[in-house]
């Protein structure tokens, strides 16, 4: 199954993993989005701190 898909879909290897039923790619993307929010918040308030000091 994977092999036929590989033949049909020649884009990238990750494409296959995305379609894998046990893939956690979405989880990885989600937590990194969360991490991004943490960093942006922290950096913003730290900039405010620097601006006011």
């Amino acid at each position: 199954m994977a092999k036929t898909e590989l033949n049909r879909n020649t884009e990238t290897e990750t494409e296959i993993e995305v379609e894998d039923s046990s893939s956690l790619k979405g989880t990885l993307a989600s937590v990194f989005l969360l991490g991004f929010i943490l960093i942006v918040t922290w950096v913003s308030v730290y900039s405010l701190f620097l601006d006011r000091s």
């Binding site: 956690l24 790619k25 989880t27 990885l28 937590v31 990194f32 991490g35």
Partner: peptide
């Protein structure tokens, strides 16, 4: 594997 990547990134931050 992804959780390792996430924790290394998180703890690193």
């Amino acid at each position: 594997k992804f959780e390792k990547i996430w924790l290394i990134f998180g703890i690193g931050s």
